[in-house]
Design a protein around this nucleic acid. Structure first.
Lengths: 187, 187
DNA sequence: AAAAATACAGGACAAATGTCCTTTCAAAAG
DNA sequence: CTTTTGAAAGGACATTTGTCCTGTATTTTT
């Protein structure tokens, strides 16, 4: 729980009392390797904080191919964010790549906090903005850089992925096939 | 101004008095075709609402190639959003593709509104979430779909782009070359 | 109206990336 | 310990996409 408290403190505008009230809402859930936090089609009704472990988010193309959308390492927030925002069915599956522990916070509880305390509104806005910034970076890479450059960028900026994530998943995360990733790694 | 009031009303949680107070902050600025709303390296200190006209946002690669990031048609909000969020220099240029009119709102004024009225915090959070949702869609397309599919998707979902945007800009928006876009259009 | 700049299409060829398949190695299961 | 499964590398070939270039309208400038 302390990791989460630290995470919230670092955001900057939450009082200790706010944080304490928030932590009350959490329930710890453990996942075995392969377990799902959410499956495609379900509606995401909770936000999570990964206490330990690694998760992978992926969706299926029309052709039933898996495409890896992102990875989440502890200590970080996790959710099927678009479904959480819209209240519509999730396009993504989120699965544990290792044993994992996650604190789960019901959306209704968070909404109650936001209604009574603008600091939580601010925090939610801050989160959404940070998610946007990450996406803008990714768009830029996907839009113009070659697969080789994208791989080099990943090596530099997210080396933990290379250490912990099977290459088959990294390939689709990068928007390429396993075959091509193998070529890039040999070069 | 009425278009903007309508836009704000449709967001859902703003009172008429909130909207009126907000509109007070705006100044209308006109742009000639080719004029810049912001240039790479500047810090974005204001949010805009496009009253009329079309804008294009673009980056430069290391190789000095232009890459089109997005288009903004009236009536819609516009800004170098990542710079607005972080207060750091903008990676993007935003240029008028046609004559245009934009209502400009200083960031300091918006921050004052947020500090005194949580409805504006909510609105800012809502905006950030909507921007995130758009980006998630684009990531999905870029990550897995072929250029042909991306073009078909654009035809279906954003036909106004095909009607008003030069193909050279659409190509880099789609993450391909003009040559390839020409091929896709012939097919 | 003439000249210059811009936008678009498309040919020829090259490079990047995908598909299909086989092999090897290691990890997990019996 | 053996068997099975899963992950990765890489060969051969096909497809997609990029590069370079030319030609032709069209628009803009003079």
């Amino acid at each position: 729980m302390e990791a989460l408290a630290t995470y919230l403190r670092e955001a900057g505008k939450l009082a200790e009392s706010d944080i304490a009230a928030f932590l009350e809402l959490g329930q710890l859930k453990t996942f075995q390797k392969g377990d799902y936090l959410i499956r495609e089609g379900q509606i995401c009704q909770e936000a999570g904080f990964v206490q330990s472990g690694i998760f992978r988010s992926f969706y299926f193309t029309q052709n039933s191919e898996e495409v890896t959308y992102c990875f989440t390492f502890a200590p970080n927030l996790i959710s099927a964010y678009s479904s959480y925002i819209t209240g519509r069915p999730s396009p993504e599956n989120i699965q544990a790549l290792t044993e994992a522990e996650v604190w789960l916070f019901p959306k209704t509880g968070l909404e109650a906090l936001m209604a009574q305390n603008p600091a939580w509104l601010w925090f939610s806005k801050h989160l959404a903005e940070q998610q946007y910034l990450e996406m803008e970076q990714r768009i830029f890479l996907l839009q113009k850089e070659s697969a080789e450059t994208r791989y080099a960028h990943l090596q530099r900026e997210q080396p933990q992925l290379l250490q912990h994530i099977p290459l088959q998943y990294l390939a689709s995360y990068l928007g390429i096939t396993q075959r091509h990733l193998s070529r890039l790694r040999k070069a």
